[in-house]
Design a protein around this nucleic acid. Structure first.
Length: 619
RNA sequence: GCACCCGUAGCUCAAUGGAUAGAGCAUCGGUCUUCGGAACCGAGGGUUGCAGGUUCGAGUCCUGCCGGGUGUACCA
């Protein structure tokens, strides 16, 4: 069994075991022992998983309990039957030890053979992909994330979509999928109407000349208050209050400016052309600092020429109709709010753009899946848009998964949405600066780290650790829940933090520097890795679960599955490294342990890289 | 009102319907002539908001309450 590169095939023990269980269950069903439909097979095979406790072995199967009732047998008897057939399943005995009797109500516990484990980890050491096989069926996946409104400065609210989306895209790509990332910029909506209105009524020319971005940001914030005209906000802002007094119809006028832009008004269009490069330069600087790259940046304006056609087509098909002067797609009963696709003033809405975008992506990219990494408050919107797209019957819609990858709100340590003391949203750049500044205060404080680091090194390390901390803190939590933003917690040197993980990498690097070990030679030597000590075995097995962790990230688009696994891996490594000599070991044992260290360092580094987090040699 | 999300250790958070609900912080104790001690090992701490139900098995699924968040016709 060899792969294209002449190496032995990469082994995913869980996949291999599931394949053996599949053969077993199929033979059981064929012999009339129990009826199993093809549709329920995947669910049963998901019940093959790693054990909760190493004392139960490495993997367990729990489907015997579920199958017992319909087979009219005792669970343990079904388990015994499965175990009997499992041992005869193709490939099983090469990788796994013969299972013992079922445990408890019918758990089937399986242990990986030490020889198979040693061979697999030896193969992984020599492998650029670190033992992770690419998916058998690559899919085309569009990942739509970040999507800021370019008219206003990026703030803390944009960090989650950007960081989570980037990590998911990187992970899917490494898994072997064809990934297309697209930043669906908000560059055409009402926020531009606000800037246009502000430009015409209260611009500061000198301010724009000095710092165009700051001036546009000021106009946006000011006009939003004027347009909203909320009493409590106006009470706190005399400038806005004065403008409201002077322009009582500002709210309507802002919408009119937006509508004029959409209709092709030359003046507004020219201003838009002038503002866009300024806005783009601003966000591109932040993406560069975050090391986030998009394949495409097709903002709302790109789809603008298609919007009228979308509305006309939906109306012609009887899916959309006029109501209260607007046009909406009615998806539920009369009482349910429709999905509005054209306002009474003729302007289009983001639902219109989203529908046009789906149509365009299906036509041009033919994706199997589109992931929308957008905060949970828009779940209702996406439900409606996806449903409308399906009823619309866009070409290719039947075969595509449209998934809203939702995430919670970033909260301050007071449990309220994260704001400055003055009550403003926190700018993203200021946030990154503070993280880096705080990281600078703690990095390089250890003896090893301090030795020979110059100011440039320290700056680089602080940037990597500070940005990494912010990203990791976000990624390591279940994305569906709100999370509390705390610099103190995310920069902890222990626990599940970026700094701890980066430190683990630096420790591994330190071994090779100190020992003067040629890592390339180590990898090419192909000496067998030994797994005789339980701590070596535990580390080797954990290393080989990298692919399983990535597979599980994909299932529910949850990067925290990867961070949790990386943290476990770092724990296995620490236990191993603390108890067993490496550089001080001798002969094949030394080579074997060095190989485990090398692979651990590379897997940790790759894992962090897939999360968009950098590493350093020393810190 | 209706819909969706969330209630887990003192705090911040984990836990694809599986075995004794786990980490970190904080508290207390232990290891060691430091291969990077920013380490390792261990202890205490829980009626998983409440009450029912389904299941061989429920933090997880269903129903009803209680508490919090979000959304709910022309902003994205």
């Amino acid at each position: 069994m060899t792969a294209e590169d002449g190496q032995p095939a990469r082994v995913n023990f869980r996949s291999a075991l599931r394949a053996a269980f599949r053969a077993t269950l199929e033979s059981l069903a064929a012999d009339g022992g129990v009826t199993i439909s093809a549709a329920e097979m995947p669910g049963l095979l998901e019940q093959v998983r790693e054990t909760a406790d190493a004392k139960f072995g490495d993997y367990s199967g729990t489907m015997a309990m579920a199958l017992a009732k319909r087979a009219g047998k005792k669970p343990r008897d079904v388990a015994v039957e499965i175990i009997h057939r499992l041992q005869a399943a193709p490939g099983f005995s090469d990788l796994f030890e013969p299972p013992g009797d079922p445990v408890g109500p019918g758990f089937i516990n399986v242990r990986v053979k030490n020889e198979a484990l040693a061979a697999a980890v030896t193969r992984a050491v020599a492998d650029d992909r670190l033992g992770v096989a690419a998916v058998a069926l690559p899919r085309t996946v569009v990942v739509d994330f970040s999507s800021p409104n370019v008219a206003k400065p990026m703030h803390v609210g944009h960090i989650r979509s950007t960081v989570i989306g980037d990590a998911i895209a990187r992970i899917l790509r490494f898994r072997g999928h064809h990934v297309i990332t697209d930043n669906h910029l908000g560059d055409w909506g009402t926020q531009f109407g606000m800037i246009l209105w502000g430009w015409k009524h209260c611009r500061d020319d000198a301010g724009f000349a000095a710092d165009p971005t700051a001036e546009l940001g000021r106009l946006y914030r000011l006009v939003r208050k004027v347009a909203d005209a909320k009493p409590d906000e106006l009470a706190a802002d005399p400038v806005a209050a004065a403008l409201v007094a002077k322009h009582p119809a500002a709210g309507r006028e802002v919408l009119a400016e937006t509508a004029k832009l959409h209709e092709g008004d030359p003046e507004n269009r020219a201003l838009w052309e002038r503002f866009m490069p300024v806005c783009r330069a601003e966000i591109d600087r932040l993406y560069a600092r975050l090391h986030v790259i998009f394949d495409h940046t097709l903002g709302e304006s790109f789809f603008q020429p298609m919007l009228a056609g979308v509305v006309d087509d939906l109306m012609a098909r009887g899916l959309a109709r006029e109501s209260r002067g607007a046009v909406g797609v009615f998806l539920g009963g009369e009482d349910d709010p429709p999905l509005l696709i054209r306002k009474a003033d003729g302007a289009f809405l983001y639902a219109t753009t989203d529908l046009a975008t789906i149509q365009w992506r299906l036509a041009h990219w033919k994706p199997d899946r589109i992931l929308y990494v957008v905060d949970h408050r828009q779940s209702g919107h996406f439900e409606q848009v996806f449903e409308a797209a399906r009823r619309w019957g866009v070409d290719g819609i039947a075969g595509v998964d449209l998934v809203h990858v939702a995430f919670g709100t970033v909260l301050g340590e007071d449990g309220r949405p994260f704001k400055t003391r003055a009550g403003d949203t926190v700018g993203l750049e200021a946030l990154l600066d503070e993280g880096v500044e705080r990281a600078a205060a703690i990095v390089g404080s250890g003896d090893e780290g301090r030795a020979g680091m110059n100011d440039d090194d320290r700056r680089h390390v602080a940037e990597t650790v500070g940005i990494g901390a912010i990203k990791y803190a976000d990624l390591c939590q279940n994305r569906t829940t709100d999370y509390v933003f705390s610099f103190d917690k995310m920069l902890e040197l222990k626990g599940n933090t970026a700094a701890y993980m980066q430190y683990a990498v630096a420790r591994v690097e330190g071994i090779f520097t100190k020992g003067g070990v040629d890592r390339e030679a180590l990898r090419n030597a192909r000496n067998g890795v030994l797994v005789s000590d339980p701590k070596e075995r535990a580390l080797a097995l954990e290393l080989l679960r990298f692919g399983e962790a990535l597979e599980d990230v994909e299932t529910d688009s949850r990067p925290n599955v990867l961070t949790a696994w990386l943290y476990d891996l770092a724990g296995c490594y620490s236990t191993f490294y603390d108890a067993l000599p490496v550089l001080k070991a001798e002969g094949s044992e030394r080579d074997s342990r060095l190989a485990l260290c090398d692979l651990t360092g590379r897997v940790l580094r790759k894992g962090l890289d897939l999360l968009g987090i950098g590493t350093v040699e020393r810190m």
